[in-house]
Design a binder for these strands. Structure first.
Length: 368
DNA sequence: AAGTCGGGGTA
DNA sequence: TACCCAGACTT
C-alpha cells in the first residue's frame, strides 16, 4: 500500500531540492554565535536554549552562558544556583537543570566528550528526538533528521502533508520525510537550511513564497494552498489564580525569601512568601495573608499596606498577584530559624538569587 | 494522547 | 487577544 508521502515524493527532484536549499542557506544564513564553531557542547547548549524560544531572545543568554560555563567541565562543576541565575528570564527552567545533569553524566561516563551515537544521546536528560538529531547533524555531520516546528511547517507545505502537526505521532512522519530528502554529504546545512527557511521565508503567516529558494519544489505553492498549511489543532485552557505575596521586613530591614520546591512550576527558583487566595472567604486579603504567615512560619506579622498588583501570564496559567508590605518585630521574629531554603536577607543579597520574571518585577519596584 | 512547563514577540 | 517560538517530560 502506497502512503501519501511516497506518492508526493514520486515526482520530487530530491537532488535539486537539496542543492537549492543548501546553496541558499550557505548564502543567506544569519550570523549567530553558535555558528562560529562546531564545538558539540556549544551546539548542545544552543539547541536546549532554542527549544520553544526565539533566536533573538537566546543570543544574549547564549553568550553569557558560554562565558560563564565555557566547557563541559565548567558546567558540570558549577553550583546549580549560579546556573539557574544564568537562565533567569529564559523560562522552562527544567531545561537547564536537565542540561547540567546530562553534562555531569557526559563528564563522568564519556570523559567529557558529547556522544556521537543516537542511543547514547537519547539517554541524556533533556535530549529528545529533535535535540539528538540537531547535535548529530550539526556537530558531527551525521545525516539524522532534526524535526522542529519550523521543519514541520516547511515540509508540510513543500510535500503537501496535511497531518495535524500538534499530534505527537506526526513528528515521526516528518522524520521519515527528512530521511528521504536529507543530503548525506551536508546534513548540517540541510537541516539548518530547513529551519532557517522556516524562520526567514516560510513563516507561519504570510510566507514570502516569491523569495523562496525552493519555490519550484513546493507542492502547496503550486496549488496556492501555502496559507492552509500546516494543519494544527489548538487547545488552550488558561485558569486564573489569585495570589497574595508579602514583602516582609524584620527589624534590620532584611526581606524574607524562600526557595520553591524542586519539582513542578518554576522549580528551585526563589520567591516571596505567598499563598493562593481562597475566593469566597469571609476574611479579606490582608487577613488571609496574616493568617497564612502565622500558620506557615509561626510569625506574627503586621500588614502595613498594599504595594502593587501584577498580572503574569504563563502558557496555561495566569497569576494575579497582590503584593503587600509588612514587618515583623524582633520579639515576634526571634524564634524564627533561618533555613537554607527560607531566610531573611538584605535586598542586595536577595537580588543575587534566581527569581521568576514575575517576582523580579516586584523586586525591581522595591526602593532601598 | 493529553497535560505540564516560561516568557516575549507579533499580527 | 491569540498565536508562535531550533521541545521534552510526566501521567
Amino acid at each position: 500500500m502506497e502512503t501519501n508521502l511516497e506518492k508526493n515524493l514520486k515526482n520530487f527532484n530530491i537532488l535539486q531540492f537539496q542543492q537549492d536549499l543548501i546553496d541558499w542557506f550557505i548564502r543567506e544564513q544569519r550570523i549567530l554565535p553558535w555558528r562560529k564553531d562546531k564545538d558539540p557542547y556549544k551546539i548542545w547548549v544552543s539547541e536546549v536554549m532554542l527549544q520553544q524560544t526565539r533566536v533573538e531572545t537566546v543570543i544574549p543568554y547564549f553568550n553569557n552562558f558560554i562565558e560563564k560555563f565555557p566547557t563541559i567541565e565548567a558546567l558540570a562543576n558549577a553550583e546549580e544556583e549560579k546556573v539557574l541565575k544564568a537562565w533567569e528570564g529564559l523560562g522552562y527552567y527544567s531545561r537547564v537543570r536537565n542540561l547540567q545533569s546530562a553534562v555531569k553524566e557526559v563528564a563522568e561516563k564519556y570523559g567529557g566528550r558529547v556522544p556521537d551515537d543516537a542511543k547514547e544521546l537519547s539517554k541524556l536528560k533533556g535530549v529528545g528526538p529533535y535535540t539528538k538529531g540537531a547535535i548529530l547533524s550539526i556537530a558531527y555531520g551525521i545525516p539524522e533528521p532534526a524535526v522542529d516546528g519550523n521543519v514541520m511547517r516547511v515540509l508540510s507545505r513543500i510535500l503537501m502533508i496535511e497531518d495535524d502537526i500538534s499530534k505527537q505521532k506526526t513528528r515521526k512522519l516528518f522524520e521519515n520525510a527528512v530521511r528521504e530528502l536529507i543530503s548525506p554529504d551536508q546534513p548540517s546545512e540541510f537541516n539548518q537550511g530547513l529551519m532557517e527557511l522556516g524562520a526567514l521565508i516560510c513563516t507561519p503567516k504570510s510566507p514570502s513564497c516569491l523569495l523562496c529558494p525552493v519555490q519550484r519544489h513546493c507542492l502547496a505553492f503550486g496549488e496556492g494552498l501555502q496559507d492552509e498549511l500546516p494543519v494544527k489543532t489548538t487547545k488552550k485552557t488558561t485558569k486564573t489564580v489569585v495570589i497574595n505575596a508579602l514583602i516582609l521586613r524584620n527589624d534590620t530591614g532584611h526581606i524574607l525569601v524562600q526557595k520553591r520546591p524542586s519539582e513542578g512550576l518554576l522549580a528551585n527558583l526563589w520567591e516571596l512568601p505567598n499563598h493562593e487566595m481562597k475566593l469566597h472567604s469571609a476574611q479579606d486579603q490582608m487577613e488571609q495573608l496574616k493568617h497564612f504567615m502565622k500558620e506557615k512560619y509561626q510569625l506574627d506579622v503586621t500588614i502595613e499596606n498594599h504595594f502593587m498588583n501584577l498580572k503574569h501570564e504563563f502558557s496555561h496559567l495566569i497569576w494575579n498577584i497582590a503584593v503587600y508590605n509588612g514587618y515583623v518585630s524582633g520579639s515576634s521574629a526571634e524564634h524564627f530559624v533561618q533555613k537554607e531554603n527560607c531566610m531573611f536577607l538584605p535586598l542586595e543579597d536577595v537580588l543575587r538569587l534566581p527569581f521568576p520574571v514575575s517576582y523580579r518585577k516586584i523586586l525591581a519596584e522595591i526602593k532601598v
